[in-house]
Design a protein around this nucleic acid. Structure first.
Length: 562
RNA sequence: GUCCCGAUAGCUCAGCUGGAUAGAGCAACGGACUUCUAAUCCGUAGGUCGGGGGUUCGAAUCCCUCUCGGGACGCCA
């Protein structure tokens, strides 16, 4: 679909480019010198017109004359016949401003109506395959706020990318191998024996959360004391498998309740079992990036532009998490993804350079991997920070959050800030049904529109045929502002996708909802008079469509009534 | 010590691939409900964009430096 705004912008850009070429002689620009990059953007200030370009400013250096002079010359060569431009002016230091015919915005609503749920969709992804890996929490406990933020961000990014025409897969990497898993087994064993009335201690490095007590209880319910006198290895293995299964199921269910579904759950252990980890180390060795020291195998720091070397296989022969992770990322590219996105907590940022370096060392393109580092979440309740510590088991879980504030508010709050900004999550605000809560503000706009259509139906009215409506009746400032903003959505969505920035959509839809509320407050829809009522009904429906599409991308529901 | 993220209105944050007079929400203050939902709207007030240098026609945005927060620097994951 060719969107109106993008089409107009592209048209003006083309016209400017050819004008600049045609003006080379007049401007004294050497034919060999390439034209500079310039922008055609929507100016912040409305009376600067619908579009503005900095082309004249960018040409000051090659043309060696004043920007306003250049602008005048450019305008002489400018052919804007196809662009719907009414007026061109030079302003400020040398910007060229374009004023379109005021009627242009009336072509927007039919576009929204035609596309409906697909309005805003684009093909910039060109079906390139992209994988988004996120949350990937250890199955050793419940999901916490960091996981929750990662879930909301990752899922929305994936939705945005898909909306932008990428072929997207959501993946959860299951850390079912390594030390933490041994600790889980030992912790489970302790809880199991405790449950059977025996004295046992959860190891200091183990998991002290209450949830494991419950898991042990469930285990006893299923297997009784059958494993009390079993050999410890057998007992631990059995307990571990049980706990992993229960934990993963719980994680899956919690995420589903949060609106997040994965395409692939990828087991770390499977990389060890299949020999992929060993094979990856062999490849690195073959490429000369491995050295042996103190009985361990190291990835040379020089392989990833670092001073330090990193252990990949310990002296005891056990590969490190890093080794498995390299194998995992190699596997991702082996599966044919062109773009691999990971969402990691700030505490993992030190890992980024190593991972990219390892890809480089494998002969893979490190730039095909993007690691989004998200900053920490701080929870506030009653104006106080809620202290959290996973080790002691003292932390607010995602389940509790969903219980307390619901999935909609939670999803919105987690994506309304950019990933690299610390997030202060105010629990009281998130669950307050008040004007302070941005989620309700947006949902309310959607519900209000639904209310209009309910009312319309009760009066026996019907939605107008979009082809017969006279949109030019929408002359009010509030109407025009609203329509104009609807035209922005396709570009907002595309930009948010390539920037991996769902918060842009959160801001956009909040702004859009505000414009609707202003309109709604100032003007009647039903009973506005024949033609005007028809036009406003379509305006309302288009607005509802875009709000709905945005909320959909953010994983927030769009209620019909509140 | 090295590296990463942040510092913008009273608070929480947008804006950051350089553009024209720096924005939003909340909080504050003053108004608007016989109306399609007042979970709303309208208005007022609020700023040395952490400090200092630099780059240029132009800097919140790029570079250097300093200060202050948070995080990372393990044969943990």
């Amino acid at each position: 679909m060719d969107y109106l705004l993008a089409g107009l912008r592209a048209g003006i850009e083309r016209a400017l480019r050819s004008a600049a070429e045609a003006a080379r002689d007049d401007l004294g620009i050497h034919p060999e010198v390439p034209l500079p990059e310039f922008t055609v953007e929507v100016p912040r200030e409305k009376n600067f017109g619908d579009f503005a370009t900095n082309l004249a400013l960018m040409l000051t250096k090659p043309a060696r004359r004043s920007p306003r002079q250049i602008a005048e010359t450019l305008i002489k060569h400018l052919n804007l016949q196809e662009c719907g431009v009414q007026q061109v002016t030079i302003a400020g230091p040398g910007f060229i401003n374009f004023q379109l015919h005021p009627e242009w915005i009336y072509r927007i609503l039919p576009q929204v109506e035609t596309a409906g749920p697909d309005y805003g969709r684009s093909r910039i992804g060109g079906s390139r395959r992209v994988q988004v890996e996120f949350v990937s929490a250890n199955p050793t406990g419940l999901l916490h706020m960091g996981n929750a933020r990662g879930a909301a961000l990752g899922d929305s990014m994936a939705s945005l990318l898909s909306f932008a025409g990428f072929d997207v897969a959501r993946e959860f990497y299951v850390n079912d191998a390594g030390h933490q898993i041994e600790n889980l087994a030992l912790s489970m064993e302790a809880r199991y024996l405790q449950e059977l009335g025996q004295a046992a201690e959860v190891p200091e490095q183990g998991y002290h959360g209450e949830d494991l007590i419950e898991t042990a209880r469930h285990f006893v319910g299923r297997h009784g004391d059958r494993y009390r006198d079993e050999a410890p290895e057998v007992r631990r293995e059995k307990l571990l498998q049980y706990a992993l299964d229960e934990k993963l199921t719980a994680i899956r269910e919690t995420l589903a309740a949060f609106g997040v579904e994965y395409d692939v759950w990828f087991s770390e252990q499977s990389l060890h079992d299949s020999g992929a980890v060993a094979e990856t180390v062999d490849i690195l060795r073959g490429r000369g990036h491995i050295l042996e020291k103190d009985g361990a195998l190291w990835l040379k720091g020089s392989a990833f532009g670092a001073e330090k070397d990193e252990v990949v296989v310990r002296a005891n022969g056990v590969p490190t998490y890093f080794a498995a992770d390299i194998a995992y990322h190699k596997n991702k590219f082996d599966r044919g993804f062109n773009w691999v996105i990971n969402i990691w907590g700030a505490d993992h940022h030190g890992h980024v350079a190593r991972m990219k370096g390892a890809l480089d060392a494998l002969g893979l393109d490190p730039d095909a991997l993007d690691v989004v580092i998200m900053q920490l979440v701080r929870l506030y309740r009653d104006g106080e920070i809620v202290r959290m510590s996973k080790r002691s088991g003292q932390y607010v879980t995602l389940d509790e959050l969903l219980e307390e504030v619901g999935p909609d508010a939670a999803r919105y709050f987690f994506v309304m800030r950019s990933a690299d900004s610390h997030l202060d999550f105010d629990l009281d605000l998130a669950k307050s049904r008040s004007n302070e809560n941005p989620v309700y503000y947006i949902q309310y706009a959607h519900a209000r529109i639904a209310g209009i259509f309910r009312q319309l139906g009760e009066r026996g009215g019907t939605l107008p045929d979009t082809a017969t409506v006279d949109y030019s009746l929408l002359q009010e400032e509030a109407e025009r502002a609203l329509i104009r903003r609807l035209a922005d959505f396709p570009e907002e969505a595309a930009q948010a996708a390539v920037d991996l920035a769902p918060h842009r959509i959160a801001h956009y839809v909040h702004d859009l909802a505000g414009l609707f509320h202003s309109f709604y407050n100032a003007h009647r829809v039903i009973g506005a008079g024949d033609g005007l009522e028809q036009a406003r009904l379509v305006l309302a429906r288009s607005t509802q469509t875009v709000i709905h599409n945005c909320l959909n991308l953010l994983g927030v529901t769009a209620p019909e009534r509140m």
